[in-house]
Write a protein that binds this DNA or RNA. Structure first.
Length: 741
DNA sequence: GATTCTATTATTTTT
DNA sequence: TAATAGAATC
């Protein structure tokens, strides 16, 4: 099968054909990572190193898992069914369903997505009568998930202060509630799987013996628990255990805020005595200048495993840099530039507008819209997260598992059926007394509230009976009809789209059962009553659907830099390159936050194939106020010769580089850019003769440099970075600042 | 039970 | 600014 290895470069070839052993593949941006991963699997199987059943391949997103499956089945005709290829959560779900008894779960356990989990925590706090000011639900959710992702059950958490001790108690209560309701949240999927493997020796041995090759994608994004899970499956690297083949790029680790632990890469090298570290540094995506810029930029990070991208495609165009006065000027210029690119024959869909935070998309959208340029924004609600879809799913969940209180509370009075807050409170009190789920508590309830609730329970019971023998999509249809959801949205003025989404849910159900029916592998658990429904519900939780961005159509693509990871475009505009924005202001507070921002910038830069535009503004509307920030330090970190300024280069620098304290707007200044409206009067007047970047003196804090400003008139404030005293916000009207030299 | 008002608060996000 | 959550009101 020679064509399998054709056109691989030497490093890729080395990675693909490595004799079975642990390996770390440092795959730079655009270096053919997915190709290596899939070819490796094919190579292992074709050369008899392992059967398809012996493969375990883990990814982070469903998209990546699907991509891998598609490429594999295109590569050679093998049934991919025997292979365990999927996301961490998808595979753990599969594992827990197969061993639900040993895992201490009912067969039809439900999966809570983040929103469900938050609702569940809120309900818990309410039931325990706990002040949610003191224990904000979101914070508690984060705390619980962080513990689980560190592999810690409540008993194992070290609590040094009262606050944490209390949170640990709530963690315990939350666990009990989930168990009672037969639901499992995302981190729980992993933790349960991990614990089951750890505790249950026969099961552990079975899987350790089965999986000979474990391949991990985006390894830099794994958290602690995921690493432990992998490690356990690979028998900690002991003789006879599976070979771990981890592919990742420490320079593209941008998800620390959700638990990703880059340290796993070093730990892996150490724990598994990895002898083969292969660097994929040849980039097939971008031109040289872009890669040089990316390399120079990321070179400012200290904590790296080290890697340098190169290409044989030639230097290409310089990186274009543009300084705008305001955010709307920036947007206007970007749109004009896009129009001119399109006139020259560019495809709109090959152009991407990237930004650090979602709030920045508005100005851009506004400008694109008024100029009539087709565009598409990634982000926002996904299909299974829509209100009407969640409602329909909640009814289905109650049919599958009546103990699911989250689903119960969601739809007990939707559409409204006269069950108000007081009835629910009575029910919740009773549930606590009897220690039963809400659904089971209803029969215990006497009096008036019991009547309406009894009808609701009767409705669910009826639905369960009526749908018992129906195919999945008819079940969904029937439930939407009989629950009154369809009727409700038919009466609603703007319910049309919601109705369409409900129909789409029926379609999704039909597709799902078609796929499951076709994909039912021999030897897999045969369909038990209700299991197709349970699987569909798990699917809905685990795969929230697309981000409502119609591919296909020729539209400019707008998204955050995070969302752009893994994608590539001919032309990339990266806007808002200003201090406080990118790097984001909050990042400087946390340890290594700046390095993560720089990696984010690195990801952004490496998205571009041919042309990269970097832009920043002098003043920007943020939170209803105009903010003035220095241009991003990341701009200074890109070597001058690689860039081409479209506006006259401004000598003002960001405060990280050598400060050049002077009145940059006095004297000769800079000529206004052609066809630009006059600069807003943001400096001399608003800041009382002071300017951003200027050195000042404060009687108490000493010498410093103005790094940001906001507000105007008597409200005007400036942020000064003092040599000794750190950064401070000062009211101009109060602080006695004098220009220093 | 639905609507309107007010206060609060502003990264990044997959499963 | 603007979105959202919660309270107050009809």
């Amino acid at each position: 099968m020679p064509q399998l290895l054709d056109n691989l470069n030497p490093e890729q070839l080395a990675a693909v054909t490595l004799a079975p052993q642990h390996a770390l593949i440092l795959a730079g941006a655009g270096s053919g990572k997915t190709r290596v991963l899939t070819t490796r699997i094919a190579w292992l199987i074709q050369n008899g190193y392992c059967s398809p059943q012996g493969i375990l391949a883990v990814t982070f997103t469903n998209k990546a898992a699907k991509e891998m499956l598609t490429r594999l089945s295109a590569m050679f005709p093998i049934n991919t069914r025997g292979m365990w290829i999927g996301t961490f959560h998808g595979l753990c779900n599969r594992f827990l369903r197969a061993h639900h008894r040993d895992a201490g779960l009912p067969q039809l356990f439900q999966i809570l997505d983040s929103g469900d989990q938050l609702a569940s925590i809120k309900r818990l706090l309410k039931a325990l009568n706990i002040d949610d000011e003191k224990f904000p639900p979101r914070e508690l959710q984060h705390f619980i998930n962080a513990q689980k992702e560190a592999g810690l059950r409540p008993a194992a958490v070290e609590a040094w202060d009262d606050y944490t001790r209390r949170r640990v108690e709530l963690y315990t209560e939350y666990e009990a509630q989930c168990q009672r309701e037969a639901v499992v949240d995302f981190p729980e999927l992993l933790l349960r799987s991990y614990e089951l493997l750890e505790r249950n020796e026969p099961i552990r041995r079975h899987y350790q013996a089965r999986f000979r090759h474990i391949l991990v994608d985006e390894f830099q994004d794994t958290n602690r628990l995921q690493y432990k899970w992998l490690s356990l499956l690979a028998d900690g690297g002991r003789e006879g255990g599976a070979s771990l083949f981890c592919v990742g790029d420490d320079d593209q680790s941008i998800y620390r805020f959700r638990g990703a632990e880059i340290g796993n890469m070093r730990d892996f090298e150490r724990d598994f005595r990895v002898e083969s570290v292969i660097r994929l540094e040849q980039n097939y995506r971008s031109h040289g200048n872009i890669l040089d810029a990316a390399n120079a930029l990321i070179g400012h990070n200290t904590k790296r495993l080290g890697k340098n991208l190169w290409t044989d495609r030639g230097a290409g165009e310089p990186i274009r840099v543009y300084e705008a006065f305001t955010d709307s000027d920036e947007a206007r210029w970007i749109v004009e530039e896009i129009q001119s690119l399109v006139r020259d024959g560019a495809c709109r869909s090959d152009i991407a507008l990237l930004y650090r935070s979602n709030a920045q998309s508005r100005v851009l959208e506004h400008q694109l819209f008024s100029s009539g340029v087709a565009y598409r924004v990634y982000g926002g609600l996904r299909f299974f997260e829509r209100q009407e879809v969640k409602h329909a799913l909640a009814y289905l969940r109650l049919i599958a598992n009546p103990d699911d209180d989250t689903a119960f509370t969601r739809v007990v009075n939707f559409p409204t059926r006269g069950i108000g807050a007081r009835s629910l409170e009575a029910l919740q009190d009773a549930a606590r007394t009897w220690n039963t789920p809400l659904y089971q508590t209803v029969p215990h309830l006497a009096g008036k509230p019991g009547a309406a609730l009894g009808q609701f329970v009767a409705l669910i019971e009826r639905l369960r009976v009526e749908t018992r023998d129906l195919p999945l999509h008819e079940t969904v249809d029937h439930v939407i009809e009989m629950s009154g959801l369809r009727g409700h949205y038919q009466l609603e003025k703007e319910g049309q789209e919601r109705l369409e989404n409900l129909d789409e849910l029926i379609n999704a159900a039909a597709n799902f059962s078609a796929e499951v029916g076709a994909g039912q592998a021999p030897g897999e658990a045969p369909s038990e009553p209700g299991s197709v429904l349970a699987e569909f519900l798990a699917h809905a939780s685990l795969e929230a659907g697309d981000h409502q961005a119609d591919a296909g159509s020729d539209a400019v693509q707008l998204m955050t830099v995070h969302a752009a990871k893994g994608l590539e475009f001919d032309v990339v505009f990266l806007s808002g390159l200003e201090e406080e924005l990118f790097p984001h202001g909050n990042s400087t507070a946390e340890a290594d936050g700046l390095e993560e921002e720089r990696r984010l910038m690195y990801v952004a830069v490496t998205r571009a194939r041919q042309r990269l535009y970097l832009s920043f503004t002098q003043g920007r509307m943020l939170h209803g106020q105009v903010r003035y920030n220095l241009r991003s330090r990341f701009l200074e970190e890109i070597p001058e010769p690689l860039t081409k300024w479209l506006t006259p280069p401004n000598p003002r620098r960001s405060y990280v580089s050598e400060p050049s304290p002077r009145y940059y707007n006095s004297g000769a200044g800079k000529p206004a850019a052609p066809s630009m409206p006059p600069p807003p009067p943001l400096r001399s007047r608003d800041l009382g003769g002071l300017a951003i970047g200027q050195a000042v003196n404060h009687p108490r804090f000493g010498d410093g440099v103005i790094i940001a400003a906001e507000g105007s008139g008597s409200d005007a404030r400036v942020q000064v970075k003092f040599a000794e005293a750190g950064s401070k916000w000062l009211m101009l009207a109060v602080a006695k600042l004098t220009p220093a030299s």
